[in-house]
Design a protein around this nucleic acid. Structure first.
Lengths: 340, 340
DNA sequence: TCTCAACACTAAACCGTTTTCGTGACCCTC
DNA sequence: GAGGGTCACGAAAACGGTTTAGTGTTGAGA
């Protein structure tokens, strides 16, 4: 077991000073060609690599960024992470992934442990609990320390920082419009509780699209699902009590489950009933029939978020004001909707 | 913007020495009650937290572990990560996630950058390219440096270290047996290229189960899929050329795609044709009909892997020989198979 | 011959901690 | 009143690097 070699040991072996070795390694002009060669050859032989921790301490930067997400078992978030990872690595940064598990406390703990020198900046998507509590002291603290923070997807207006969001209201407006253009009239909505800004915004888009098309809003067609466990039951109830010719789900699971129920009840898809979901996961891709979805471009979102954070880290003009970037969505037509 | 306060600044403000502050913070018996109170009160007021980087440098341990996985957009891996994350956090460690994207080079780079002080140990699942190349010098190097390495899921016999694996051969044996018991006779297998140990082992289990049941092996019923792009085509070809009453897919996607094809061709599932997949992802759960699967307990695997690594980190008996732990699989019956 | 610059290198400070090894003040004991 | 012990604290080394500010030697120009 050969331990890692340090600069000090190289210096001793080669009978030069520590500073000479350091400079030789960086091809400093202060050092003679001979010495540089000698040092670098020796370093290569012993596979010397400078200790990153020592560098971090000295340079006051770690080249690490933390991303805190509510859940990783979720296709959209894994796409975002992939995007973040790719861009960050390109720019020479490592990514530390922390999971808040939708818990406020864990989010706070994660931020506090990370903020103590481990990382240079944060990428954050708020947990449900934090959105509910509206307690953002941990974000403020981090920002006050001068550590850059970029929020993505689940953000808050109360915090002043860089943000990357999806225009959920418009995305859902477009989806509903698509359904209407394809001939649907009574469109059901399966959405989440209102405190998740996403559920709220997507509902808004639904309402607006109906309004603009002159279709009267029927509250009975709106199903709010709090926990996954109640999804099945609520969907069944919807089918039992209402008549409709399309369903828009604010995520792919809701749409797929509804589609399955329709299938079980013998509806022809999309002729008798159309479906659109949100976020392009594997469920939509491999459901039967395949599901038309609003695609959110999570990978690009991750890339942009990482770029935004690293830009902020590497330019020190704290003066430049914060930006909010909106990621465009698009609709991917598959088998669950009629062609327009 | 109030910068982070250091121990040195506290010392200056309170007119005591640095060492006194340090000791006071850890309630050392060397320090008088008065001073301890004074220091801690001041520290709390200014929200002092020791700098982790400095601690890492001093203690030669970072309390970070790296997990290198081939892909994150994959339910099984996200389950593993969740398990790792949970256990690691419980034990006071942070998790740094690196993606190799199935690339040998990226795997090497990831390991090299991480090994330089950033982390205390590795959790690794090999990339496809590495499995193909059989080049493990980067693993050996890390092990030689005395850094613990635990491999999970995709491992190699050539490397001597702690491992956590799934008994793929047995799992697939059980699945096939299940199909046979439920009355199936001609069972097709959709698997991956042989160099992925997983594909190989699962194929082996298939072969053995047939043999033990006295069913003759028909090579035409075995479909090897290299890339996802050719999946559809190969599945169609199978349906075009062969007759069979069950399909076993070495992952959930293969099974679901085959099931969809059967559905399209009008087969009654499971009466006329049964399906079992591998790994319990959302696809299986929400496919139509829902898919019976071999569940791999990814979360537990992650937890165990993390525990194994941290145990190795915290006991310094390098003498204790390496363990290989086998995670048991089980079969989750859903709608795509006949009851036994 | 003296001065000055260039060269090639070294010493030491610094980053923020912990920890070992003092050290001065005080009290007690013989 | 000399020696010893305890208390409360401080100085300095160490972790592994980078960087600034010297330093000694050499050669050239005046």
């Amino acid at each position: 077991m050969k331990k890692k070699i340090t600069i000090k040991e190289i210096a001793r072996e080669l009978d030069v000073s520590i500073s000479t070795v350091s400079k030789a390694m960086s091809n400093s002009s202060e050092i003679s060609k001979d010495t540089i060669e000698k040092v670098q050859a020796f370093a290569k032989l012993y596979n010397y690599k400078p200790n990153n921790i020592a560098l971090s301490l000295k340079n006051k930067k770690t080249k690490n960024i933390a991303v805190i997400i509510p859940e990783i078992v979720h296709h959209f978030f894994t796409l975002i992470i992939s995007g973040i990872e790719k861009k960050a690595n390109e720019l020479g940064y490592n990514v530390i992934v922390c999971l808040s598990n939708e818990s406020f406390d864990k989010e706070v703990i994660n931020m506090e442990t990370m903020a103590n020198g481990q990382i240079d900046g944060f990428l954050l998507s708020l947990s449900k609990e934090t959105l509910l509590k509206k307690d953002f002291h941990h974000l403020r603290e981090v920002i006050n320390q001068g550590m850059p923070l970029v929020m993505f997807d689940r953000t808050s207006d109360e915090i002043y920082c860089d943000k990357i969001i999806i225009d959920d209201a418009r995305a859902s407006y477009n989806a509903i419009q698509h359904l209407i253009y394809s001939g649907c009239q009574r469109i059901a909505l399966i959405t989440t509780a209102d405190y998740i800004s996403i559920g709220k915004l997507r509902t808004q888009g639904y309402v607006n699209a109906l309004y603009d098309a002159g279709i009267e809003l029927d509250e009975n067609l709106i199903v709010k699902v709090d926990k996954v466990e109640e999804l099945d039951e609520k969907v069944k109830h919807l089918f039992d009590t209402e008549k409709f010719d399309a369903v828009f789900g604010v995520n792919e699971l809701y749409a797929v489950v509804a589609m399955r129920e329709a299938h079980n009840r013998g509806f022809k898809i999309p002729q008798e009933m159309s479906f659109i979901g949100f976020s392009d996961g594997i469920l939509s891709k491999y459901s039967y029939p395949t599901l038309t979805t609003v695609i959110q471009h999570g990978f690009e979102m991750g890339e942009k978020a990482a770029k935004m954070l690293i830009d902020r880290l590497e330019t020190n003009d704290d003066e430049s004001s914060f930006k909010t970037e909106v990621i465009k969505t698009s609709i991917l037509e598959r088998e669950s909707t009629k062609p327009i």
